[in-house]
Design a protein around this nucleic acid. Sequence first.
DNA 1: TTAGTTGTTCGTAAAAATACGAATTATTGG
DNA 2: CCAATAATTCGTATTTTTACGAACAACTAA
Lengths: 102, 102
Amino acid sequence: MAHAIDYEKYTAQEQQLAVFAKALGHPARVAILQKLTEFDSCCHGSLASELPIAPSSVTQHLKALKNAGLIQGRIEPPQIKYCINKENWEKAKLHFSAFFKD
Amino acid sequence: MAHAIDYEKYTAQEQQLAVFAKALGHPARVAILQKLTEFDSCCHGSLASELPIAPSSVTQHLKALKNAGLIQGRIEPPQIKYCINKENWEKAKLHFSAFFKD
DNA sequence: TTAGTTGTTCGTAAAAATACGAATTATTGG
DNA sequence: CCAATAATTCGTATTTTTACGAACAACTAA
């Protein structure tokens, strides 16, 4: 595992902010999150139809956002509805505002 | 250039936020920025001595932050002093706060 | 059951990010 | 000039990210 980020060598704050920031570090993921904050919940298809990337790529980005804790999905046949994870969203908001405060 | 992010397919806001976020997406860069906001200006060496990575890696991260517009350096023999690019820092702050506002 | 819709997984390829050490540049002090 | 200091550049290895299409799974509706 050489040459990967070794998060353990940094403070918990540095780690957490970096994880959230990394999740926001792609314009497609920014667009997804904006849509989810605007519409409260969306299925994969309605996100994919507005993004300039393939459906399978959208799935990858959704997974990245999920891993960072920023979104969650619930099955609602025939679709899967994705929405903001409000608890972690608030956490991210606080991390960023603390970082830029001064 | 296949399989790289095609920023042009996204809105200016999505692009800009993603660029800033990507720059914050590594704990070492978060640590560097925190130190620069705390101490106003630092040389490469004093940053490197507090980070768990090699000096040449610190240079790489400084370059990434510079490319994103978040820091700038000025020669002040025998050192190079790095500091926050206040104009873009403010811009980043506004982008993030707008993003999380709702 | 069959066909259609929805979304994911998988494999793969290309590119970027991460990290390091060695060598290099540039400047200062003796 | 020569040595020391400060930091970068360069080359390289490894890992991660990005992207796509094909195949697959799951559920619905006819």
